[in-house]
Design a protein around this nucleic acid. Sequence first.
DNA 1: CTGAATTAATCAGGGCACTGAGTATTTCTG
DNA 2: CAGAAATACTCAGTGCCCTGATTAATTCAG
Lengths: 154, 154
Amino acid sequence: MAAADLTTHPGHLARRLQQAHYLLWNAMVSEEITSPQFAVLNTLVAEPGLDQRTVGERVGLDRSTIAEVISRLSRRGLLDKVRDPQDGRRSLLHLTDEGERTHRRLTVRTARMNQVFLAPLTADERTVFFDLIRRVADAAEGLRHPGEPLAAPR
Amino acid sequence: MAAADLTTHPGHLARRLQQAHYLLWNAMVSEEITSPQFAVLNTLVAEPGLDQRTVGERVGLDRSTIAEVISRLSRRGLLDKVRDPQDGRRSLLHLTDEGERTHRRLTVRTARMNQVFLAPLTADERTVFFDLIRRVADAAEGLRHPGEPLAAPR
DNA sequence: CTGAATTAATCAGGGCACTGAGTATTTCTG
DNA sequence: CAGAAATACTCAGTGCCCTGATTAATTCAG
């Protein structure tokens, strides 16, 4: 007895939302390039030559995950990865021509998909939707860095 | 040039939201039991004896994923899985005592975590937050089943 | 009643996401 | 300047998430 109602659990809703998006992306944007991969391409269009860690920070992926995503994009010839001569620890990233073409092509499809995805909401609701999610995500991310203990508040 | 602004991409926001939740769950609820695993336990508290596929449907996991999650829960002794004598294709699931205890314990922690997670929002905003996400997720899920072609509308 | 669909579960394979440990390089400090 | 601390990346390990193909059991149609 005493089962919780998952429809009031933000984590459960977030997961379902992401899954729904995953499916729609696959159907309407690309089966080859995933949404996180597109986010990386998009970041490198705006800021070519960024190092791996910073790209991860921009798109919200940790060191290990960004390494995998970049390795796949590199394997497919969408970006080049070279050691920084100024700082031998860093890997600098640049899109290839093919990478830029892919980004351009997917940008159009992505916009179309977002329209479909957000179709159930009015323009005002979309604004609120973005604002609320962003605030919750930002706040939770902010809890990571500081010395805040998170759980036991003493 | 012409990089998109990811902060207006619902998919990107959904992913960030889910990651933020993942981290908070890990810090405040459990490092052993994940949120999807808890969802399964919760479903079986409400409806003991459900078959594997139906549980997956309830919590929003496909056949393959639910199989993995259940295999882990079973390995940890939190649930029992037995072949349905009435229908040899089905696996029927029941929580063990340990599974019920775990569910009870995590229910409390989960409620506390949700408070922290939603702290940036007022009570009214939380209602809207749930409503908007649910509507978008439901609509996208609804696009899967029908004969709708999704992409090329002809 | 038997062959054809349907259904539940499994398996193989690809990708995302995190942690903890380890390596190489750079920077900071005494 | 040498050792310590910090930084970027890699690697191993676990878990979530999906698709397509396969297997076993049930149900349906002729």
